[in-house]
Simulated assay, not measured.
Amino acid sequence: MTLDASRSRATAETRLELASAASVNPLGTGEGGVVLNSASGRLYTVNDTALAFLRELDGKRSVSEIAERLSEEFAQNHAIILRDLIPVANLLIDAAVIRVLR
């Protein structure tokens, strides 16, 4: 999947929410999960970090605030998690799995 430059881009301050046509289903501990976009019929697999990110989306907290929460959960540096989440968020925006609220 390539990034679509015409769509909104995620930044550290962006607020995001799961798209109405998307559903997230965990596969089990350490197995990640699957995301279905029912509008397109596309199915995506995600790792545990992306699954945790999707579960944290509430439209209120920024990507940076979610990264802070995940840095605690995964015992990883906030800056590293944030650096890794932004491109993932942009791919999920392009897949119409999540949407930008700003």
Results as ranks from 00 to 15, higher is better:
90 N>S: 02
75 A>T: 12
53 F>A: 10
100 V>P: 02
3 L>A: 12
84 D>K: 14
96 A>L: 09
96 A>V: 05
70 L>E: 04
76 Q>H: 08
101 L>Q: 06
26 P>T: 03
84 D>S: 14
49 T>D: 02
89 A>T: 01
67 A>Q: 03
78 H>V: 11
34 V>T: 10
30 G>H: 02
59 G>I: 10
98 I>T: 08
82 L>T: 13
46 V>W: 03
70 L>P: 10
79 A>C: 05
13 E>W: 00
4 D>Q: 13
94 D>T: 15
94 D>M: 03
51 L>H: 05
5 A>S: 15
76 Q>W: 04
17 E>Y: 02
82 L>M: 00
54 L>Y: 03
91 L>R: 10
68 E>C: 04
78 H>T: 11
29 T>A: 14
14 T>P: 02
48 D>L: 09
40 S>G: 13
93 I>T: 06
36 L>I: 12
88 V>N: 04
17 E>H: 11
7 R>S: 05
64 S>R: 13
59 G>V: 09
12 A>Q: 10
62 S>C: 08
68 E>A: 14
23 S>F: 00
12 A>R: 11
41 G>N: 03
47 N>M: 01
3 L>F: 02
15 R>K: 15
3 L>M: 08
30 G>E: 06
72 E>R: 13
43 L>I: 15
49 T>E: 09
99 R>H: 12
5 A>E: 13
69 R>S: 11
67 A>N: 02
23 S>M: 12
25 N>I: 08
61 R>W: 06
82 L>R: 06
102 R>I: 06
62 S>A: 08
34 V>Q: 01
76 Q>S: 14
12 A>V: 03
26 P>H: 03
56 E>I: 07
47 N>Q: 05
18 L>P: 14
74 F>R: 09
3 L>S: 12
45 T>C: 02
44 Y>F: 15
77 N>W: 05
30 G>C: 06
14 T>V: 04
31 E>Y: 12
9 R>Y: 04
100 V>Q: 03
77 N>Q: 15
